[in-house]
Design a protein around this nucleic acid. Structure first.
Lengths: 216, 216
DNA sequence: TAGATTGTTAATCGATTAACAATC
DNA sequence: TAGATTGTTAATCGATTAACAATC
């Protein structure tokens, strides 16, 4: 009987995903044990934070030795759902959309790309790797037939909301939004916003601040 | 004499960048005033948070009317450095790197792309929009000659650390890292990590949790 | 004027860090 | 055994929200 744990804070979830990626690398290296301190060092955290985070899991380490990498990896994969594959479609076959479709990272980390769509008739029919760009009118059928879970939005800001509604109407439950606009969605739909330009602006601020400090 | 404000927490900085993007759109629409409540609604925050954030700026709103969009935009642009352009290079001319180079978002939001580099000789010389892919041996010269501020890393995880060191040695002060590995850098160098696959994994967790809750 | 909205203080909430007994 | 590392509680720190007097 698994103990009922409270809902995971998103700060903890974000780190669990990181630990999991790290554990996979460590496993590949053939390592067997890892300590909270080693995990913390690798990600720029404190060992206290790591141990607090692992409290959210049904897994215990071993005093003096740390955590058995293989076991912890399995527990995390199960909690994160990394042991079942997610199905996604990409909407927007511009540069970003096509590069994500061609990028191997999604596939190797558990996601299947079930289609790429664009409303531009000139794009439709073009090949992107093994996929052929489809028109928006096919979206709902593909989502239903292939039981697609997630939509990745890589269209311009002006079309993003319409695309989101289209995907939600088709039955999708989660959106990764790369369009530079904040999406408002109904309850029950999850959204993760990816903000490349904004990240760059934060970086730009930090650099300028550093330069000022250095002069002072 | 501008009052010396304390260092800005990164949570506040992240939102200031968002406000600024929003203010730009509002300006384009020809709007003149905006309230803390309207800003909050647009980004899913509370008006309290917005007003607290604006306390970090040398700018005051007007009781009963809100904030004058044009003035607030200017103050923010100045604080964020959005009134001076940042220069960047992209290292890694794979799908992601090329799509970022071709993407207009960086240029329209204040960043100039000064070069794209790859260590693969077969890539070197190929055109990516107006840019030609250069070999790694040219990197240091370009960074120095064009006074490049930022590096965007879009190489595989295995090469990311070497590329980061190369960029830092060339004199760059900030890195946007899209490689799926956590970068360790010396003091004084800023890093922003972009984690597409990890974002997708967080989304996947949220969806599965939602599905469980719906069943319960 | 009356009412809406700011600026700011205080209260709450949540996340991180410190500390240390338990333990293998 | 002795020492390293866990699990967990308590302390600290920081961020968000609530509340409301000031005000145009």
């Amino acid at each position: 009987m698994t103990r009922r744990r409270q809902r995971m804070p998103s700060s903890v979830l974000r780190r669990l995903v990181q630990y999991h990626g790290l554990l996979r690398s460590l496993r590949e290296e053939g390592r067997e044990w890892v300590s909270s301190q080693a995990l913390a060092d690798a990600l720029g955290l404190t060992s206290s934070t790591v141990r607090q985070d692992l409290l959210h899991l049904d897994y215990s380490g071993v005093s003096k030795r740390g955590y058995r990498i293989e076991d912890l990896d399995k527990v995390m994969a199960s909690v994160l759902g990394a042991d079942t594959r997610g199905r996604l479609v990409i909407v927007g076959a511009g540069n970003i959309g096509r590069s994500l479709a061609l990028h191997g990272g999604f596939v190797t980390r558990g996601f299947d790309i079930c289609g790429i769509f664009d409303k531009d008739a000139r794009m439709v029919g073009q090949w992107v790797g093994r996929l052929r760009v489809q028109g928006m009118e096919s979206l709902a059928d593909v989502v239903r037939d292939k039981q697609v879970d997630l939509g990745v939005i890589t269209v311009p800001a002006a079309s993003a909301h319409a695309v989101a509604e289209h995907l939600i109407a088709a039955g999708i439950r989660g959106l990764l939004n790369m369009a530079p606009i904040y999406l408002r969605v109904p309850d029950g739909i999850s959204v993760v916003e990816v903000r490349l330009v904004e990240s760059l602006q934060e970086l730009w601020y930090a650099i300028r601040l550093g330069a000022r400090d250095a002069r002072a």
